Simulated scan of single mutants.
Amino acid sequence: MSNENISLQMRQHPGQAVITAHTIVTTDGPRHYLMATPRKQNENLRPLVIILHGAGASAAQVMGLAFPVSPLSVWLEIAEREQLLVVAPDGSKKGWNDSFAHVRNKPETDDTGMIRNLIAHMIREHEADPQRVYVIGVSKGGMMAYRLATELGSMLAAFASVLANMPQQSVCAAPVTPISALIVASTRDPLVPYGGGKYFYTPLLSPMKSINDTVDIWRTLANLPATGKSVDIPKSAASNPTSCTRITWGDNPEQLQIVLLRINGGGHAEPSQSQFYPWFLSRLVGAQNTDIDIAEEAWAFFKDKRCKDAGGNSRPETASGENK
Results as ranks from 00 to 15, higher is better:
R124P: 00
T150C: 14
S139L: 03
G141H: 03
N97D: 11
D90H: 04
Y134T: 06
W96D: 10
C172F: 14
H102F: 11
L148V: 04
L118W: 01
H126E: 11
W96R: 12
Y134C: 04
S170L: 02
R104Y: 02
V162G: 06
M155R: 13
P89H: 08
L84T: 06
E82G: 02
P130R: 05
M144H: 06
P130K: 05
M143S: 13
L191N: 05
M166T: 07
M122V: 02
V135F: 00
L163Y: 09
L191M: 13
S154Y: 14
Q83K: 10
A128R: 07
P130F: 00
T112W: 00
A145W: 00
S92C: 11
Q169M: 11
V138F: 14
M166D: 12
V133L: 02
L191T: 09
R81D: 13
A185N: 12
E82P: 02
A101R: 09
L85Q: 08
N165W: 07
A101S: 15
G91D: 08
K93R: 13
V138G: 05
V176G: 03
P130S: 08
P130H: 04
M143H: 05
G113Y: 00
A157G: 15
A149N: 10
T112R: 03
V133R: 00
T187G: 04
C172N: 13
K106P: 01
P107E: 03
S92M: 14
L182C: 04
N97Q: 10
E151Q: 15
V135G: 01
C172T: 15
E125G: 05
A157P: 08
D189I: 01
A181R: 08
E127V: 03
P193A: 11
M143F: 01
T177A: 06
I119Q: 09
L191S: 08
V86M: 09
T177E: 15
I136A: 12
Q168T: 12
M144P: 04
T112Q: 02
S161Y: 11
S92R: 14
I119K: 04
K106Q: 15
D129T: 05
E127D: 12
P167M: 05
V87H: 03
R81K: 12
L84Y: 08
M114N: 04
M122I: 04
R116D: 10
L118H: 04
V184E: 13
T109C: 04
A164I: 08
V162T: 09
D90T: 07
K94H: 12
G91R: 07
R124Y: 02
Q168K: 13
